[in-house]
Design a protein around this nucleic acid. Sequence first.
DNA 1: AAAAATAGTTAACAGTGTTAAGTTATGCAA
DNA 2: TTGCATAACTTAACACTGTTAACTATTTTT
Lengths: 209, 209
Amino acid sequence: MGIKERKLKHKEDLKQHILNAAKKLFLENGYEATSIRKIAAEIEFSPTTIYLYYKDKHEIVHALHEEGFKILGESFKVLAHVEHPFERLKAMGRLYIQFALANPDFYELMFVMKEPLEHIDEDCGWEEGTAAFNTLVDTIKACQETGYFKNFEANVFALLVWSTMHGLCALKINNHLDHMVTNKKVLENISDGLAHTFEAYVQMLERLK
Amino acid sequence: MGIKERKLKHKEDLKQHILNAAKKLFLENGYEATSIRKIAAEIEFSPTTIYLYYKDKHEIVHALHEEGFKILGESFKVLAHVEHPFERLKAMGRLYIQFALANPDFYELMFVMKEPLEHIDEDCGWEEGTAAFNTLVDTIKACQETGYFKNFEANVFALLVWSTMHGLCALKINNHLDHMVTNKKVLENISDGLAHTFEAYVQMLERLK
DNA sequence: AAAAATAGTTAACAGTGTTAAGTTATGCAA
DNA sequence: TTGCATAACTTAACACTGTTAACTATTTTT
């Protein structure tokens, strides 16, 4: 009983097993409560065993961060079926917010925390993020071809759009919006859902035709 | 020598003394390296003494977070001398970025981390943040009176502006922009300085007249 | 002078990431 | 089959973290 069937034949299996346990704890209890020791307990191995498969905690959290991008990428797949560029951009924004609200811990790992990116493959770049950003740039460019955002450099404009979305999501997730709702009437509708604010943003972008 | 002149007559003095030590360590070595024990060592007191003046670490980091708002508020004072609302809005943005880049650790404490806001005065609200946001709202309203941002609810629009600025600063500070500069030509100018991107944003806002 | 309140300390608990050294089991050559 | 090297895993420890209970020494009040 205590010592379970740990006949995971290949190394890769256990490596994945560790990651799954980490993911489970991460989703259930958040980042804070996901320690090496708890991951070890979850898979019924000694804490040090984990270091045979992952260099350090950074590497685990980086792997989780990649998992997050898989989830986001998966939800972005539907965008291929949205013909009109601006509609695609809007849908992208909605999916982004949706992802952030549904997976706040993953969002933090992917876009807020610096831990996953530091000490991991020296200045090798941030592939996942760059890829996601490039699809945004492409969409912006497509929008420009239909008359939107004229006279803007696509990359810079994409960064602005992303920043707005990220700022919105980050402030919401870190409770900075909710903590501001003392002025009851003033900000009530804002932090209710981001949907309302997002629609105003769309309206704003629409004026840039 | 070892036991220095610890004749800080009043309690408040030592409380401030602790905060100054915390601030020093915080500025020198960042948040990670600012532990209760190190603060205690800095002021040559026992770690537990700190708990006689601050309930827990949250309270200290909250006090630091307030210090940050004092610095930002100080730099915002010059805005009173900027007559034209839109010019004032632009100046505000520049000062915000300037503050974020000059005091990244404070910025993180004030707008990124949730630690300073949780477990501190239950749902009592975020006075500092709310106050700062209100001055933004006022400026937006003033802009609207001179023809800008018509048909937008001031609060919502202010949140959008803040989100963009925050997104930009947060991504920059957390190195998410720099880690994306693998596509050398594409993003070179972007993460160089935020100034360029900010100017594009101003240009964008100007079109909403 | 005795009692009470104040200020600060030591020692400990329970937790963290991480590493060096030791153990056990596995597979392979002689 | 025996002997041995290597891989897989564990135990014990280090140096930290925030935090608390219990203790001491000093000052103030009665």
